[in-house]
């Protein structure tokens, strides 16, 4: 009997939780706020689902109930992606080391 692909996805999921666990513990506490904003940005990779939904309309009409929800989700995820990465960048640019002359 063949293994259900779901099991593979589940394996990826479980292993990723462990990777996340170890990676996040190594994040320095002073960068916890950028950590939250960047996780915000990357979790908006949900936009891939939104794009599939948005392009689900047929040739006669781009808009149907399903694709409209897709377009709305695209806009929301895009706010997060751009906003999340840019605000993270803005924050990280502020972290500076002590100047040597002081």
């Amino acid at each position: 009997m063949e293994i259900d692909p779901l099991i593979f996805r589940l394996s990826i999921f479980i292993l990723s939780i462990f990777v996340g666990y170890y990676v996040v513990w190594s994040v320095t506490p002073s960068l916890h706020t950028p950590l939250m904003s960047v996780t915000n940005a990357i979790s908006s990779v949900i936009i891939v689902g939104a794009i599939i939904a948005g392009l689900s309309g047929n040739n006669e009409s781009v808009f149907n109930t399903s694709s409209i929800f897709g377009f709305l989700a695209i806009a929301l995820a895009a706010i997060n992606i751009f906003g999340g990465f840019l605000v993270t960048q803005r924050m990280l640019a502020m972290y500076k080391k002590k100047k040597k002359d002081k």
Binding site: S16, I17, G20, V24
Partner: peptide
């Protein structure tokens, strides 16, 4: 969606928030 990128990211963000 059977999408690996989303599964990996979801797990990362989920455990990150839990640790915090």
């Amino acid at each position: 969606l059977e999408n690996t990128a989303l599964i990996i990211t979801g797990a990362l963000v989920g455990s990150s928030g839990a640790i915090l």
